[in-house]
Design a protein around this nucleic acid. Structure first.
Length: 292
DNA sequence: ACCTCGACCTGGGCGC
DNA sequence: TGCGCCCAGGTCGAGG
């Protein structure tokens, strides 16, 4: 599901609800895979903690608490939503045409693995159908959480996103450009959707090898990356089935995509048929005419 | 250093 | 209606 624009949309929609709130109780229903440390310690450490800042780096949400740092990765189908005590719960429902899951706020169901109940009566629910998400709680003084962040490359929406650094990293690799874009050490936050979109805008085919691309073309790509991410964010993220923000709302960006998910359809620029190729073990959609 | 594959999971859509 | 197969916004580790 969630790439940078979706994670950032979640962050922004959590901001009015979370900072200042204190954790009153913690329920971890689906242990192991999801949380670190083990549920007993996880619950004990979170109890009574107060949310302060909420940050993001790439696809990682970083909750700053008084004595801990909580890092959440939404995996493919993670949904982080706020529940208000005065609002009615409605189960998730699939839209018959779009397939989108929608609900303003939901009761705990079989896929709701973690709930944080807050002292003001609201709650933070984590729902994740495929359970690829990760919650990691660290004490502030642990170095492990900073090491996690150091393993991530530059965030394309940060002020320090640097064309020159990006171009250098790409040109010293022989991998296909699509694989380089998906590498979180190069551009943290880019995933399959926005990689395909950026490559289309820059006119580069996904199979092209990094070291063979000219500086001029990579300059275009380096600028296309923040461009597609900003557009995604402006549209509240891309929702195909599961993605919703903290208020349970789906995004609109799926209606604005040039290529992703449009295999077999007409290219919006040249009317040619969009092709599908597997690059770096991921499906890529691209236009043979517009991308060389 | 890079590739490919499989693993981790569940559910929707499709063809038969 | 049902079954089997393929696919999906991600990442990690093993083995070549």
């Amino acid at each position: 599901m969630p790439e940078l624009p979706e994670v950032e949309s979640v962050r922004l929609s959590l901001l009015p609800h979370l900072p200042g709130q204190v954790v009153a109780s913690v329920e971890v229903r689906h242990p192991r895979v999801l949380v670190y440390p083990q549920p007993e310690a996880f619950e004990r450490q979170l109890l009574g903690e107060r949310f302060e800042q909420l940050e993001r780096r790439g696809k990682l949400l970083i909750f700053r608490l008084q004595r801990h740092v909580l890092m959440v990765h939404l995996g493919m189908t993670g949904q982080l939503t706020c529940r208000h005590p005065n609002r009615a719960d409605r189960p998730f429902q699939r839209h018959p045409v779009t397939g989108l899951q929608r609900t303003l706020q939901h009761p705990v169901d079989a896929h709701t693995h973690i709930s944080l109940w807050l002292e003001n009566g609201s709650a933070l629910h984590y729902r994740d159908i495929r359970k690829f998400g990760k919650w990691r709680l660290y004490r502030l003084e642990e170095s492990a959480w900073q090491e996690q962040l150091q393993r991530l490359g530059e965030d394309p929406l940060s002020a320090s996103w640097d064309d020159e650094l990006f171009i250098r990293q790409v040109r010293q690799s022989q991998r296909p450009i699509k694989a380089i874009l998906l590498d979180q050490k190069v551009a943290s936050g880019v995933g399959n959707i926005y990689a395909d979109e950026a490559l289309f805008l820059a006119g580069i085919r996904p199979q092209a090898r990094g070291h063979r691309l000219s500086r001029a073309r990579l300059q275009r790509l380096s600028q296309a990356i923040p461009q597609v991410l900003r557009q995604g964010l402006a549209n509240g993220g891309t929702s195909f089935s599961d993605y919703v923000n903290a208020d349970g709302q789906a995004g609109q960006n799926q209606e604005k995509l040039w290529v992703y998910g449009r295999y077999g359809q007409a290219c919006l620029r040249c009317q040619g048929v969009l092709e599908k190729a597997v690059v770096a073990q991921r499906t890529s959609t691209w236009c043979r005419h517009c991308q060389r």
